[in-house]
Every structure is written in C-alpha cells, then in structure tokens.
C-alpha cells in the first residue's frame, strides 16, 4: 500500500518535471551535430517560466474554443501518462482496456488543438490542422497494431501488464515482432511529436509546417501550456519505447527509475541524431512512411498469429 503511494507520487512527479528536459537534450544533440554549443539543457524550463509570465495577444475572431486547445493539449497527455507503467508493472491508474483510452485521450487532445487552430480563421492554421488530423488517421492504426502485438503476447489489456516486467520473457521467443513494433512506434513518435523527417519544429516557413503552424496564434501562458503538453506527449511516447525495449524489473526502486530516466534520455538522443542526419520528407511522401509503420507492426502481428 505504502509502496503503491510512493510509486504513484514518483510517477506523477517524474511525469510533471522530466518532460521538458527531453526537448533540451534533443536541442543539445542537434547543436553538437551542427558544431555549435547550443542552448543550455534546462533552456525549455526557462522558456516555460518566461512564457507563464508573458502577456497574451488573442485574435478578435476567436471564441472560447480557442482556449480549449491549449488546456486539452496539456491535460490529455498528462492523463494518458497515468496509464503507462514507468517502472516495474505499476501504473497509477490501470484497468482492462486502458490502452484504448490512452489512444483516444490523445485523439481528444488532437481534436481540440485542431479546433482551436480553426477558430482563428487563418488559412495557415487551417492547413496545419488538416495535415495533423490527416496524418493522425494513419498513425493511430500503427500505434494500435503495435498494442495488439503486446496484447497477443501478454494476454492482457492493461498497459501496466502489457508493458510490465512480464514482457521481458517474450523477447527471446517473439523478438522479431517486438523489433518491428519498436521500429513502427519510433516512426509514430517522430510523427506524433512533429519531428524530422515529418515536420521541422524549427522551420521558419509556415507553409511547410504541420503541428507548429496550428499554434501560431497562441501566446503567453497558453503557448507555454502547449509546449509543456507537447513535451509530456513526447515523454509518453518515449516511455512506451523504453518499456517496450527494457521491460525489466531489477528489484531496486532506484535502479528501476534510473533505467527509465536513462532510457528516455537515450530516446531523446536518438531523436536528436535522426533530426540531425535525416532530411525532411516531401509532404506527399509523408503518408508513405506512416503506412510503412502500419505495415511493420501489422507484420509483427501476422508473425504472431500465423
């Protein structure tokens, strides 16, 4: 009981504090590749504090829906993260079918962000919303097929068990499927968090953006919420990958958390490396890569079902 509470407190603390660090790590890795010193590792935290104290400019065309976007964009990944086991087989909230709720909560966040973008009536933001939702249509089945592989292996529909320590026993026998899922989810991670090769978070040309162009009109605390929410979403996907690869339970709480934090940071470094070495995809080729992600995890499932 006490251990459970400790787990939950740690879970929530890490979920709230660690995510912006990932953005810092990615930025640092990219800077190193480019031969620059780059911003400090903790720069995203400073950015968030700065934004929280900034004034806002709100367009005259907007309604209350405009404010729904940032709040939902922060709240939904946070809630979804409660279902993901960060260490051992323990998640603060866990029940039969929570994997579906996790996927759909992210969908809710996306819907509200897109609606907020459309609320401004700007053509660029409409364009971003259209792209975001279009690509999500393909990314969601990819994520889902991967989850199906885990359901098949572990025979459970709770994320805490599916990504829990029992998964480790399946790596020797079903490693091929799990590697396929890993590849597929990494692609989904890059897409869902608008990373190169899908989207360039640092580009200055609105026409080529996907996610960033949707949030052009947000400013001040609302924009801070969006950035914070985005980093939590990134953390969520990174945690999924880490748990997929290292579903270990060492027996020591400190070591378990160290594995998780280390793993998540490694994912951030990997994203930084990909962003530094891979070119952006042409917009027309984006669906191709996501469909490939679907096919990868789909094939992983076929391997298990045959």
């Amino acid at each position: 009981m006490l251990l459970n509470i400790l787990h939950t407190v740690l879970h929530v603390t890490v979920a709230l504090t660690l995510p912006p660090l990932l953005l810092g790590v990615i930025g640092k890795v990219k800077a190193l590749f480019a031969g620059r010193v780059g911003p400090r590792l903790l720069q995203p935290y400073y950015d968030l504090f700065k934004l929280a104290r900034k004034g806002s400019v709100i367009s005259q065309t907007t309604t209350w829906v405009f404010h729904l976007g940032p709040v939902m964009g922060l709240v939904t990944p946070l809630l979804a993260l409660l279902f993901v086991p960060l260490v051992d087989s323990h998640a603060p909230v866990s029940f039969n079918g929570d994997l579906i709720l996790m996927v759909y909560l992210l969908g809710l966040g996306r819907f509200c962000t897109a609606s907020a973008a459309l609320d401004t009536g700007s053509s660029f933001e409409g364009m971003g919303a259209a792209r975001e939702l279009t690509f999500a249509c393909l990314a969601e089945p990819a994520l889902f097929l991967g989850l199906l592989v885990l359901v098949k292996l572990t025979g459970s529909m709770e994320l805490a068990t599916m990504l829990g320590s029992s998964l480790a026993g399946h790596w020797p026998t079903a490693g091929a499927s799990l590697v396929l899922v890993l590849l597929s989810w990494f692609i989904v991670l890059l897409l869902e968090n608008s990373r190169i090769p899908f989207d360039d978070p640092n580009t200055h040309l609105e026409l080529t953006m996907i996610h960033e162009v949707m949030v052009l009109d947000h400013s001040g605390p609302a924009f801070g919420m969006i950035l914070y929410g985005a980093s939590i979403k990134l953390f969520l996907f990174a945690a999924l990958l880490v748990r997929l690869v290292m579903p270990v339970s060492t027996g020591s709480l400190a070591l378990d958390w160290a594995v998780l934090v280390g793993g998540v940071l490694i994912v951030a470094v990997a994203i930084g490396v990909v962003e530094s070495t891979v070119a952006r995809l042409r917009m027309t080729h984006v669906p191709l890569l996501i469909v490939a992600a679907c096919l990868l995890s789909g094939f992983g499932l076929v391997l298990l079902l045959r």
Binding site: H285, P287, L288, V291, L295, G298, F299, V302, L303, R306
Partner: peptide, 18 residues
C-alpha cells in the same frame, strides 16, 4: 502509385504467410 504498390506488397506478404 508508391502507396498502392507498397500496400499490394504487404497484402502479398500476408497472403504468402497464409
């Protein structure tokens, strides 16, 4: 199109497994 040929390839692979 690339997308269709990729999907055809995937379908073929699935059928091959069966």
């Amino acid at each position: 199109s690339f997308m269709s040929s990729m999907l055809l390839g995937a379908v073929g692979t699935g059928l091959a497994v069966g």
